[in-house]
């Protein structure tokens, strides 16, 4: 139990560093945004799971679940608005109008 928890915490910490590295290395704000919000949240999910395995009591469990729930509820809103603002700031409106339609019709 404890070894799995440490593994999850270590993996979460490593993913957090990789997410931060993505923010450094990716070429523009929109792709950096993928790294920061998505990989960062995945890292935190692993950290919270690991913490729950280390201390499997109810008073920890509901607090950890609440953190994860708030993150999951606010992340799409922040990510969506951030992407829109980044598009406006970088002046990519034309690229958006030219975006190709992919995939078949839903059936």
């Amino acid at each position: 139990m404890s070894a799995a928890a440490v593994l999850l915490l270590g993996l979460g910490a490593a993913l957090l560093v990789i997410a931060a590295w993505g923010v450094i290395s990716l070429p523009d704000a929109l792709s950096r945004q993928h790294a920061a919000t998505k990989a960062g949240t995945l890292a935190l999910t692993l950290v919270l799971l690991g913490a729950w395995l280390l201390v499997p009591t109810a008073e920890w469990a509901w607090r950890l679940a609440l953190i994860l729930g708030f993150l999951m509820a606010t992340l799409p809103v922040a990510s969506h608005l951030l992407a829109r603002a980044a598009v406006v700031e970088a002046g990519l409106d034309q690229q958006i109008r030219d975006a190709p339609l992919i995939g078949d019709e839903p059936h």
Partner: peptide, 14 residues
Amino acid sequence: TLSDRVVALDIFLA
């Protein structure tokens, strides 16, 4: 750009 800085703030939050 400002977008980059706000994106980096997300990492700070995490």
